[in-house]
Design a protein around this nucleic acid. Structure first.
Lengths: 197, 197
DNA sequence: CTAGTTGTGTACTAACAGGAACATAATTTG
DNA sequence: CAAATTATGTTCCTGTTAGTACACAACTAG
């Protein structure tokens, strides 16, 4: 079933990749529609037509970010032991948040908007939900590990997930402020030293 | 030496406390001058006269925040052992960033501005410098501990400071998103379990 | 070809932002 | 009292913001 009407002249995913970069670097509120349309190389009308408005564009960008930049979470969850999950998750997170190529440092879901005015509380909430969802997936994985006897019986899966996620958030903040991979690697390793296994 | 001229009709510190609360809740960019003047109960002209402009007001507010809300860092540094420093710092940080009275959650120096547009990079840099300064004071304290034989010889003071500071930043992010003291206390204790002593 | 549908480009708008002008009020110093 | 100094209140200004109106272009279906 082919679509009728004039065909779109840009690639949605490519445009979203550009939007991701701008939002990642500047956060939601500081990013103007002109910033977006310049980076995405499309006209304002096209953006509104394709995505709806600024907030909807942001949500799509975050979705794209999760797909293209946080694959290591799925990789980690797929590993056979809780210990391997934790190691892969945290070490990959360190790689992802520290300087790599031309990408901004830090994490879009954190610096995108931790605080905002009344008008943009939806964005703050949305980002919080995104992070909570990822943490919940990690917790679920550790719950399965506990059920298999892959974790000491006195360890609570949710606590382990929150532990790793909290440190990951801290790494993102540090990386955003300029901390290097070498600065933060000892933090990762020390964190893992307190993880069972 | 008394001051000449019309006396100020508001208390600078009280006004700054109100500014702290607004900036803490909304971040730098999302806070408008009207938000500030409404909260501080002063006219726009008075704000400009007393503080200079929005950014200068923010810097004064952060200074005030450090004085009134981060006293636990000094307390921690004054304790006799590196271990006690770490415990007091991290446990107090947890209290400070989680819900207490009517205060916002999280940490002003983090959610105040992790990312911004080109015009406000100075604020992002300033907040990063504030955090780096606090981390450096912790590192200095651990350096003294190492010199006294209060830390294992293979431990690097700067690594320990970065470790604690990274987790503190993570706690602030989690608390901002709604995590409670009970949720995060196990993270604090696990973090401390990997700290020497 | 005609009608319907969808994408694009130009120009606009209404609201709001940070900041400044300027007159006025309240104090100290002489 | 007069002069100097500092604080306040009203008003305005200029740039910028997200979002929209409307004409036009490019495609499909009949």
């Amino acid at each position: 079933m082919a679509e009728s009407g004039r065909p779109r002249e840009f690639d949605v995913d490519e445009a979203l990749d550009k939007a991701v970069e701008v939002f990642w670097r500047q956060g939601y509120e500081a990013t103007t529609l002109d910033d977006l349309t310049n980076a995405m190389q499309i006209a304002r009308t096209s953006l509104y037509h394709a995505f709806g408005n600024k907030e909807a564009t942001f949500r799509r960008a975050v979705e794209r970010y999760a797909q293209t930049r946080m694959g290591y979470l799925d990789e980690a969850i797929g590993l056979p032991t809780a210990r391997a999950v934790a190691e892969h998750y945290l070490r990959s997170n360190l790689m992802a948040v520290t300087a790599r190529g031309g990408d901004p440092t830090g994490c879009l879901t954190i610096q995108g908007g931790l605080a905002a005015g009344a008008a943009d509380q939806g964005v703050v909430q949305f980002l919080g939900d995104c992070r909570a969802g990822a943490e919940a997936r990690l917790a679920e994985r550790f719950r399965a590990a506990a059920a298999q006897g892959d974790l000491p019986p006195d360890e609570q899966p949710a606590h382990l997930a929150k532990y790793l996620f909290t440190i990951a958030a801290g790494l993102a903040v540090q990386a955003r402020a300029g901390a290097s991979r070498a600065d933060l690697a000892p933090v990762v390793e020390r964190t893992l030293s307190a993880f069972p296994g």
